[in-house]
Write a protein that binds this DNA or RNA. Structure first.
Ligand SMILES: [Mn+2]
Ligand SMILES: [Mn+2]
Ligand SMILES: [Mn+2]
Ligand SMILES: [Mn+2]
Lengths: 218, 218
DNA sequence: ACAAATTTTTAGTTTTGTCTAAATTTAAAT
DNA sequence: ATTTAAATTTAGACAAAACTAAAAATTTGT
């Protein structure tokens, strides 16, 4: 597998949200920041290789083999992200770009040893679960903050948008994974929220709230 | 810089033995395991880019810029090798192949942090010096075991041939970097040596002796 | 000095991954 | 049910990096 092929597989996996749904050529093109015609070419090649099911004009989905490949890549990406944060002192908004490169290094021993060094982590710095070597992982039971009813509490477990600007915003407002969050009130007008985060009451816009995941505790 | 371009720069650096000597097209082709015509093409491109001095039929050498690039790559390669041995439990004959990939990851912060994590090592697992961020490093004062006179002692500090079979051979015979070695006797006939390595007397062939470096102590 | 052998370059292809422009299929709107 | 619009594929081209075969330059041997 080339670097490029691997990135296509991963893109298709993510567009299918982990489920194995069919995704369109245009969606893949947008995700990969390339042109639809390039996607058609690649998708043909990958279905020749048995990684994708492709029906012209109908879209693509991962085969069993493609699914396995995607999970291995996601596992590598997320383990490297943990390494960068835990061992090298990166912040969570800096890891993605580098992990995007590191995920393509070919060495099974490398990944197994890294997993061990990190003491078999189950989630990455953004709260996303890390597949095991066999490709199993717990699907997080998480809810967008914007969908949590008034009065309920939870633990901040992940972000939907993991772009640097958003992560930097969270850092600036002292919001981190693991923080406990309680929804105090909701503004019907603009969907903004009043929440208590680690004993401080703050006001949060709808846009922010719809990019932050909670695990509900009560 | 592409991965391929980087590997050419590194090959030319190594063929020049760190000095900045001119190397031939054929030598590069052999080192890179490719054809001379491919080398000509690449060498033209890299001299366009200002990394190489190239005169048709006369060979190539690194420019100032090329030299700096080569040292950065060597630094990255060797730091990763230390990481693999020190943090992930690889043995010294397993690291080269993986480091050959890792050296191409682009992130200055990554390498600086790795350097710190490893506590600024000065040599890699094969005894080769690691250039500093500025491109400086101690040229090892080392001598091939085969050229050490009878009666002299030294510390085993490196290997010339770092292929897996040779490194495995050394492991099997309990010869490691840091061991003290004394030359007891030399067979004129085949150049083989009688040496004392950590209090054990053993017999070593000329071929082995000419691939093991000592730092002379007395 | 000159022919032979070796080294290096040039010319012409190939593969991979991308692009633009045009053609085709599918979906939406009247 | 047509027409229009949107999505997708095809055709043709290009850059990177490699290869083979042939030509040119350099080195070697006598
Ligand atoms: Mn990637
Ligand atoms: Mn992540
Ligand atoms: Mn390499
Ligand atoms: Mn080494």
């Amino acid at each position: 597998m080339t670097l490029s092929e691997e990135d296509y597989i991963k893109a298709i996996y993510h567009l299918g949200k982990g489920e194995n749904t069919t995704v369109s050529t245009n969606a893949v093109a947008e995700q990969m920041d390339t042109k639809p015609s390039s996607v058609t070419d690649m998708v043909k090649k990958l279905s020749e290789k048995g990684l994708l099911n492709y029906r012209p004009y109908k879209g693509v989905s991962l085969t069993e083999h493609g699914q396995k490949t995607a999970l291995t890549l996601v596992r590598k990406h997320r383990l490297w992200e943990v390494f960068l944060v835990e061992k090298l002192g990166f912040s969570w908004d800096e890891v993605h770009e580098v992990a995007e490169q590191l995920e393509h290094i070919k060495s099974e021993k490398l990944i197994d040893s890294l997993d061990k060094l990190l003491d078999y982590p189950e989630v990455d710095p953004h709260g996303d679960p890390i597949p095991s070597k066999k490709g199993e992982f717990k699907k997080a039971i998480k809810k967008l903050l914007s969908e949590v009813p008034i009065g309920k509490s939870g633990i901040c477990v992940g972000v939907k948008d993991s772009s640097a600007p958003f992560l930097k915003f969270l850092d600036k407002n002292n919001i981190a994974l693991g923080d406990s969050v309680k929804v105090l009130d909701k503004e019907e007008f603009d969907g903004s929220l009043h929440v208590r985060i680690s004993n401080k009451d703050i006001h949060i816009s709808q846009q922010i709230a719809s990019n932050l995941y909670l695990k509900i505790t009560e």
